[in-house]
Each structure stands twice: as structure tokens, then as C-alpha cells.
Amino acid sequence: MDVTAVSSVYKQLNKANLHLLEGLYHPNVVFEDAAHRLEGWGELKHYFESLYSNVHSCTFDIQETQQQGDSGFITWVMALEHPKLQRGGTVYVNGVSHLKFSQGQVIYHRDYFDLGEMLYENLPILGSVIRTIKHRLGE
């Protein structure tokens, strides 16, 4: 298993085919992102089932992959349609996944992305406050 195989799965991932993830992850996988730390395939599987049950759509456009030995990186743009974000419109989030492999499966998966870009900036009221703060910081 390598970053190309993982990228291939994520390119086609949707609500109807979450079973594609099962062979990808090691039973003792550690998954981290800006809001979560999950340990074990059972927790990660539940996370994905919950995530995809609450969204209209979540797709990944893979930009680039790099790997050296048992460690690699994938850059991506996620297109997320959630009923509570942007009135159900599409939110685009740029991110990077750091992956480590063991025994032919992903043992470590860490996603790096701007939680503000994904969530806070797309919520009513709070979004305009966050955008104003970012604008003022850029002056």
C-alpha cells in the first residue's frame, strides 16, 4: 500500500462506498485532524459513517502525492456540502494528509487544514466576524 492507492480510494469515496476504507486502515490506526484524535479502526469507521451521514456530499480532488519509505503526503481540495454550512452550498477546503504505513495498511493518518476555512467562516454571524478579523490582520 502507498499514497497512490490511498489517493485512488479517496478520489471515489462517497456515502455509498465507505466500505472501500476497510482494507486501507490498520486495526490500530491513529487518525488526527484539527478537531479529532481517534484510535483504532472501529473509531475511525464510526467517524466516517457519522461524517458522511450528515453531509450532502464530500469529495476530494487529489492535487499531489509524495512518498518516501513508509511515510507520505497527499495534498487535496475537499468539496463539502453540509446543510448547515453556506446554506448547503459547496465549501472548498485545502488540506494535506500525512500518512504512515505498517503491514501494508495506513497506521497513522493526520490531516492538516484550516478549520476556520472549513467551518467557522461558513457559519451565520460567526463567519462574518472571522472574515473581518482576518481582513484586519492582513492590513
Results as ranks from 00 to 15, higher is better:
residue 71 S to P: 04
residue 19 H to L: 11
residue 55 V to T: 13
residue 57 S to V: 08
residue 138 G to S: 02
residue 79 A to P: 05
residue 46 H to N: 10
residue 42 G to S: 15
residue 110 R to D: 01
residue 115 L to T: 15
residue 8 S to I: 02
residue 66 Q to R: 13
residue 116 G to H: 12
residue 79 A to I: 11
residue 130 I to L: 06
residue 138 G to V: 01
residue 137 L to M: 09
residue 17 N to A: 01
residue 138 G to Y: 03
residue 20 L to C: 04
residue 31 F to D: 03
residue 100 K to R: 11
residue 22 E to V: 10
residue 131 R to N: 08
residue 53 S to I: 06
residue 31 F to A: 02
residue 68 Q to I: 14
residue 90 T to Q: 11
residue 35 A to I: 09
residue 97 S to N: 05
residue 45 K to Y: 03
residue 4 T to Q: 14
residue 101 F to W: 11
residue 72 G to P: 11
residue 30 V to W: 00
residue 135 H to E: 13
residue 42 G to Y: 02
residue 139 E to K: 06
residue 61 D to F: 03
residue 47 Y to E: 03
residue 118 M to Q: 15
residue 4 T to N: 14
residue 59 T to N: 12
residue 8 S to E: 15
residue 28 N to Q: 12
residue 17 N to R: 06
residue 58 C to E: 09
residue 2 D to G: 15
residue 33 D to W: 01
residue 105 Q to R: 13
residue 30 V to G: 03
residue 136 R to Q: 11
residue 13 L to R: 02
residue 70 D to L: 05
residue 35 A to H: 02
residue 113 F to H: 07
residue 62 I to R: 00
residue 133 I to H: 01
residue 120 Y to E: 02
residue 90 T to C: 04
residue 53 S to C: 06
residue 129 V to Q: 05
residue 51 L to C: 13
residue 38 L to S: 09
residue 87 R to T: 04
residue 49 E to I: 06
residue 123 L to S: 12
residue 81 E to H: 14
residue 2 D to M: 06
residue 14 N to T: 08
residue 126 L to P: 00
residue 110 R to M: 02
residue 3 V to R: 10
residue 38 L to Q: 07
residue 47 Y to T: 11
residue 84 K to W: 08
residue 58 C to T: 08
residue 27 P to E: 09
residue 26 H to Y: 00
residue 114 D to C: 12
residue 104 G to L: 13
residue 118 M to S: 05
residue 109 H to G: 10
residue 22 E to N: 14
residue 68 Q to V: 11
residue 46 H to F: 11
residue 69 G to P: 03
residue 75 T to D: 04
residue 55 V to A: 13
residue 25 Y to I: 13
residue 96 V to Q: 01
residue 139 E to D: 04
residue 74 I to S: 05
residue 69 G to L: 01
